[in-house]
Structures are given as structure tokens and as C-alpha cells.
Design a protein around this nucleic acid. Sequence first.
DNA 1: TTTAGATAGTTGCAAGTGAGACTATCTCGC
DNA 2: GCGAGATAGTCTCACTTGCAACTATCTAAA
Lengths: 158, 158
Amino acid sequence: MAKLDLFKFVPFRLNRLGAEVSAALSSEYRARYGLDIPEWRVMATLGFRNEACSAQYIAQCTRTHKSTISRAVTSLLEHGLIERVENTEDRREFRLALTDKGHVLYEELIPRLLRREQEILSCLTAQERKEFARLLGKIEDSLDLVQASRPMSEVEAY
Amino acid sequence: MAKLDLFKFVPFRLNRLGAEVSAALSSEYRARYGLDIPEWRVMATLGFRNEACSAQYIAQCTRTHKSTISRAVTSLLEHGLIERVENTEDRREFRLALTDKGHVLYEELIPRLLRREQEILSCLTAQERKEFARLLGKIEDSLDLVQASRPMSEVEAY
DNA sequence: TTTAGATAGTTGCAAGTGAGACTATCTCGC
DNA sequence: GCGAGATAGTCTCACTTGCAACTATCTAAA
């Protein structure tokens, strides 16, 4: 007779842990800065890469649907946190970048989030944290989760 | 100047991986059996614990909102996969259990899901899988994710 | 016994999100 | 240069889900 203990079932555990950790972090940027998760992902991508990039690129990187990114971009534009310039080489797409105001928010937010990450991982030793990250990486690789530069068709086809 | 690389940020990675793994698994029970994730969680909880249990208990175990569980229970009842009997000791709650039909589905589904889990983890050695599970457990413990028997108020307050 | 507060479960409502249609633009082959 | 197909981004629709109100029931204390 087959049995499956949810608490020992890795897919369930990953899903639950991912949701929980996200919720713990989101309070940081939601309550304090009024950002939701897609908005934060746009900010994070633009803040990390100094050059302006397209909405499509962000969607691929963060593995978020393009319509969700589109809405997040609209909202961030309205709040003056990002700006968008036409790409004269390809007028279908827009180049997005943080505004000064966006940079200020980013600089304030990042240390808070990194601190939260450290808190969550503080139950592990330095060696364990390193090992955990390595194992996560192996699983991500095998699921093809990290190659941001693939065409979107492949991403969605997965 | 603070920087945060999303691809190295564990909360983001956990969230993305959890969503991805869930999506990979859900095709198994969605396409083949028409179950959605909350329904599958109800089935999994009832199938693992042989005794009948309440919707509230399932909500706590699976960390799913009680209204979501309520809807899943309604749907499973309609499909004849579970049954529900009044608890004479406390007439507010109902005892839920798999029907014969539900058992058959469960027995069919579990091996498939376990096989999928193995596939996902096949990129790790046996030793690494063990270590990964151990580290996951430490993080879960520190986030208080595994004590299913706490009162719901605490669960929601987290 | 009565009453206030807690708890189980259901339901209406609003917010968020993915799918897919749509427009505008680009690319490539003819 | 032209037309077919690809791509960027927006928008509508349908679906899901969390929240909160609600009913019914239980518990405990006055």
C-alpha cells in the first residue's frame, strides 16, 4: 500500500517553504514601501543590472509572466520609481531603468532584505549555508531554472 | 552601494523553485485526475492518515487557508472521492475520509508522484539528497513550519 | 442557566494572475 | 519592396484565492 507523507515530500516542502519565506520578506517591501512581489522583482532586476533592460528580459530573469511584469512596470512608472525610454533600434520594446527616487528606495531596501535572508538562514552554520546553496544550485540547473537568456518560448514551454 | 543578485538570493530561489516543482508535479494530478493543488493536498492528508480528520486539521497541516480547503472538500465530495460524517461529539466539525474510489485514485497517484520527486532529486547523490532534506528540516524548524497541531490562530499570526 | 467569547465551516467579494487576443514593430526570404 | 512569421508590450477575460462576515455550535464563567 503506497504512502506519501506530505511532511517528507520534497516538492510540498519546497512549495511551502518558498511561500513562507516570500511572505516573510514581502512584509518588508509591502508594508514599508507599498511594493508587491512583481514590483519588487522589477526593482531588483533593474537595481542589480546597472544598464537599462526590457520588460521581456525582466520577465525571463524572474520567471514571471509578461502580463504581470507589464502591470508592475505601469505601477512603478506611476509612482516615479522607474523610467522608460524608447529604444530607437527596436521600437517595439522600451528600456527600463530606476529613477533617482527608485535608486534611493533600492539602496534603502536591499540591506533590509539581505538582513532578513541572513535571519532566515541563521539556523544553519556557515558551512551548511554554503552547502545548501550548492544543492539548490544543482537542482536549479537540472530544472533549467537559471538561464535567463533563453528565448521566452523555451521558458514557457517548460 | 548595496547590491542584491536575485539569482543568489535564497528567498527568491526558494520561491521560484517551489513554484516550478509544484507546477511540474501538478501536471501529474491535474491532467490525469482533474485535481487542483488544494484538492490534492486534502487527498494526500486523508490518504496518509488513515483516521478521518477535520477540514481544520487539514488546513493546519498543509498551511492552506480554511476557505480554500472548504472549496476543495466540496469539490471532492461532488466527485465522490471523499466522504464526510458528522462528528457527534462536536457538531460544528465533520470527519473527512477517502471513499473507496478515493483510495483507488490515491493508490494510483502516489507512486507517480514519488517517481517525479525522485526524478527531480536525481541530480543529487544519495548523500546529497539526505543532506538537502536535513537542511530543509532545519530551516523549517526555525520557521516553525512543521508543528501541525498548533491552534490555527498561531498559524495565521505568523 | 445564561451569556460572552471561541471555533468549524461556508460564502460573497475583491484583488491578483495567467492565458491568449490584439496592436505595433521587426526580420527574413522572395 | 513585400508579405509571412516572430517578438514586445498591453489589455480583457476567467479563474483562483485570501479576507472577512456569517451561521451554527461549543466552552467557560458569572
